[in-house]
Design a protein around this nucleic acid. Structure first.
Length: 497
RNA sequence: GCCCCCAUCGUCUAGAGGCCCAGGACGCCACCCUUUCAAGGUGGAGAUCACCGGUUCGAAUCCGGUUGGGGGUACCA
């Protein structure tokens, strides 16, 4: 069987973590089975859709590496695939046509009920403690009656006849699911009075037209699936296989939402999470390999992915775990790759400080390469880079003189220690400016003065970097260079006076 | 309300009748490494497998019920 599956986001908001996870599972499934991964934009909610959101979604998916085989034209890129167009608003005619067919076959009918009437029905049902459902007032309207109502200026919606009985299907992750059609809320509106189609209709018409073989989506669609199956059948097409993924949850175990969690993929990206980390984390939300391994590149995920191993209970989005996984991937990235990703982040972060008046410069590739081993295991996100290595490029004044003085020392000892260290570092002859000789010379000096080496090092560390937590001190000094090291010691001495 | 789904450490999960008085990972704690911070290594705390019944020689695993949680229920997607 040819696997064809799709992600069908609605551009009514920025790319959501949940959408990204659904896209990933569809992508993995398609790749695993040599199938086709399709992107379709469900933009029929014109009021809430926007091009900004559309761009955010497309960019986000592409950034994550979830590239689609078929999809709409984007920017200068042409549409791909033979089942287009891939924007629903460009497929309006096909929904209209499908609705006409259902109408002519008596599987759907025009409904002239006003919003007020429907609201009254609902209120009555609520009062009677009944499930809200369309009562079917227009289900048997004669042609004459319809003409009369139309003459009154009323514009009908089109409703699909739900019918009676039971709908059952075998969900790939949940097994058999059965629902009584009486629980479906009555006959379903498929076309608004303005002629535009509604989601439950477009999704089915398009999945049928695009020959989707597997519908892989969030559990929030599980209850709606019987409606879709009924529609597929009415249209006379094959019903695809369904796989309903567990929801991604807020910490309080409700469906992950903007109000309670950071849901925008772009926000994570802006914080310096990398695609490898996010993809890995998302894959582990609801799926597990069955082995003890947890760190997977996308190629490995493709190799191992199996819908049968998808969990059926919801998964809380654990940011701590994402950070750990992200750190794993930052450490695994090839050096050149990490440098390339760090560059723009540093340009932005340091650029902002420079613009604020701090003397310094924005690093280039060759500046970063030698520094990489010093910082790569110290950042969990790219966004931490400015903090961890900014002092290499910025000459910020010492924020707090008290920081300069190690715990067991006083200001006088600190100044003395710095002067001694300066003396050693300043003389080119006895000490080459390399980590090893610097370390042994300073250790020796500490011993002759009766200081703990750690105290001396801490004073020097803060003097040279402005902070108490840094990469290894001597490598740091070497990277800084003799001149800048001495200048900073002088500045620190000045602060201590 | 009604319908559907779900239920193993705080979190993500392994577990498809005996290998489990439940394994791994994140987080947490301790120790090691160490000039700081990390990373890494080792160890530890942490789950009466929601509860109650049943099936079985034997249940986290199968069945029923209860409770709890979630989702759905639009001229939203």
């Amino acid at each position: 069987m040819t696997v064809r599956c799709r992600i069908a986001p609605s551009p009514t908001g920025p790319l959501h973590i949940g959408t990204a996870r659904t896209a990933l599972f569809n992508f993995l499934f398609a790749r695993r089975h040599g199938g086709t991964f399709i992107l379709r934009l469900e933009d029929t909610d014109v009021a809430r859709s926007s091009v900004e959101h559309e761009r955010d979604i497309l960019e986000g998916l592409h950034w994550l590496g979830l590239d689609w085989d078929e999809g709409p034209a984007v920017g200068t890129l042409p549409e791909r695939g033979a089942w287009g167009p891939y924007r629903q608003m460009e497929r309006i005619a096909s929904y209209r046509e499908a609705a006409e067919r259902l109408l002519s076959e008596g599987k759907a009918y025009e409904c002239f009920c006003t919003p007020d009437e429907l609201a009254a029905d609902r209120a009555a049902q609520e009062a009677a403690r009944e499930a809200p459902r369309y009562v079917g007032r227009c289900a048997g309207l004669t042609a004459e009656r319809r003409a009369a109502l139309r003459a009154e200026g009323r514009k009908p919606v089109v409703r699909f006849r739900i019918g009676e009985g039971k709908v059952a299907f075998d969900d790939i992750v949940r097994g058999r699911v059965e629902i009584e059609t009486s629980a479906l809320g009555g006959d379903l509106v498929i076309l608004r009075s303005d002629g535009t189609p509604l989601y439950h209709f477009t999704v089915v018409v398009d999945d049928a037209a695009m020959a989707i073989s597997h519908v892989i989506r969030g559990e929030d669609h599980l209850s709606n699936t019987p409606k879709h199956i009924l529609l597929f059948r009415a249209l006379g097409v094959e019903v695809p296989a369904f796989a309903h993924l567990p929801l991604i949850l807020n910490p309080d175990r409700t469906k992950m939402s903007k109000r309670k969690s950071q849901t925008a993929v772009a926000a994570y990206r802006a914080e310096g999470f990398i695609r490898e980390g996010i993809v890995n984390h998302l894959a582990l939300l609801g799926w597990s390999s069955g082995s003890d391994d947890e760190v997977f590149a996308v190629e490995e995920l493709i190799e191992r992915f199996d819908l049968a191993r998808v969990q059926s209970s919801g998964a809380v989005f654990d940011r701590e775990r994402l950070e750990w996984l992200n750190g794993q991937w930052i450490r695994r990235l090839p050096e050149a790759e990490l440098v390339e990703r760090l560059l723009p982040v540093l340009a932005e972060q340091l650029g902002a400080r420079i613009a604020a008046g701090v003397p310094g410069r924005v690093p280039a590739t060759e500046d970063l390469v030698p520094l990489l081993p010093l910082i790569r295991e110290r950042i969990g996100r790219l966004g931490e880079a400015g903090d961890v290595m900014g002092f290499f490029f910025l000459d910020e004044p010492i924020a707090d003189p008290a920081l300069l003085v190690p715990k067991r020392w006083d200001a006088a000892t600190t100044a003395e220690g710095l002067r001694v260290a300066r003396g050693i570092l300043a003389v080119p002859d006895p000490v080459a400016f390399e980590a090893e000789p610097i370390e042994s010379a300073l250790r020796a000096a500490a011993e002759t003065h009766g200081w703990k080496a750690g105290d001396l090092f801490m004073a020097l560390r803060v003097a040279a970097t402005g902070r108490t937590a840094t990469p290894p001190l001597f490598d740091t000094l070497v990277a800084l260079g003799r001149d800048r090291t001495l200048a900073r010691i002088d500045a620190a001495l000045e602060v201590l006076r």
